[in-house]
Simulated scan of single mutants.
Amino acid sequence: MPAYLIYLCHDVTDRTELETYWRVTQPTFKGQQTHVHTAYTPVEILTGDATVHGVVIADYPSFEACRAWYDSPGYVSGRQHRIRGADYLGLLADGPTADAATAADESDSGLLLPDLDVDPGYVLWLGTTEPSDSQWPAKVSESIVAAGGVCLTATTHVDVLEGKRPVRSVVLARFATTAAARSWYAANQPVSADQDPLVLLVEGGWLPPEKRMPHLQARSSATSST
């Protein structure tokens, strides 16, 4: 069963540290079969009160495989740069769907990057409580499929790796376009009304480091101290 690694960037205090993190952790992906769905593409908050500058969503072959990578010496060392330079929420959620079909290519780096010829839209829904309805995952999945989307996960099996938000449930859905993703969520908000969710609309795709969060390019240790 695959697992989804989800990271939300709430703030950047030292851009140099963050860029160092992006650079030094690249070798840790070698051999990992990390399938990137989206990385630092445009994001919109549909519901909830939060600042989100960037989102990364990737899947791994299993929960255990992702935890082994996350706890590996190389990544543990490298992520200290991100921790010093930015504020992120990091999650690991299991999922029923192995969805490597949208991957464009796999290089020796171990990263499977998204196909840039397609422009899917993702709805990422993070609940702070577990749903009271035991049929909640099935109902959410059915509504996504009925709207022409793919339910990548609807789960309460969530580990908070980093950050303070108490996430207890996750929905991740992919649609052919961001318009279709928005339409599904507008019609299905009652499904999640009792869980005080943070809901994001995220464009599929991948941006190289130099194009990520350009409005935060000037952040450095010098500016963060003022």
Results as ranks from 00 to 15, higher is better:
K139L: 15
A179T: 15
V170E: 06
T178V: 15
H157N: 08
G148Q: 10
R182V: 03
N188T: 08
P197R: 02
A147F: 05
S134Y: 03
P197F: 04
R182L: 14
E162C: 10
R168W: 03
Q135P: 00
W184V: 08
R168V: 00
D194H: 14
E130L: 03
T153I: 11
P131S: 08
K164V: 13
D194Y: 00
P137S: 10
V145R: 08
A180D: 13
T129P: 01
T129D: 06
P166V: 14
R174F: 02
P190C: 08
F175T: 06
K139V: 03
S192C: 09
P190I: 11
K164M: 12
L126Q: 12
D133R: 04
S141Y: 01
G149C: 10
Q189L: 13
S192K: 00
E142R: 10
L124Q: 08
S141C: 09
R174I: 04
L200E: 12
T177P: 11
C151Q: 14
H157M: 05
T156L: 01
G127M: 02
L200A: 13
P190M: 14
G127D: 04
R165P: 00
V160S: 07
D133S: 14
C151A: 15
P190F: 05
V150K: 12
V199K: 04
A193Q: 09
I144S: 05
R182F: 03
L172I: 11
A138W: 02
S134D: 14
T129L: 04
H157T: 13
Q189S: 10
A176I: 08
D159Q: 12
V171F: 02
S141P: 00
I144Y: 07
P190Y: 06
A173L: 07
E130N: 01
S143D: 07
A179M: 11
P197M: 06
D196Y: 00
L161D: 10
D194R: 02
L198F: 08
T178M: 05
V171E: 15
L198K: 07
S169H: 05
H157Y: 02
A186F: 03
S134G: 01
Q189E: 14
A173V: 05
D159T: 11
H157I: 05
Y185L: 09
T128M: 03
W184G: 12
S143V: 00
D194C: 00
E162F: 09
Y185M: 11
T153M: 06
A193P: 05
A181R: 09
T156K: 04
I144C: 05
L152D: 06
R168D: 01
T155I: 09
R165K: 14
N188S: 13
L126G: 05
S141Q: 13
S141N: 11
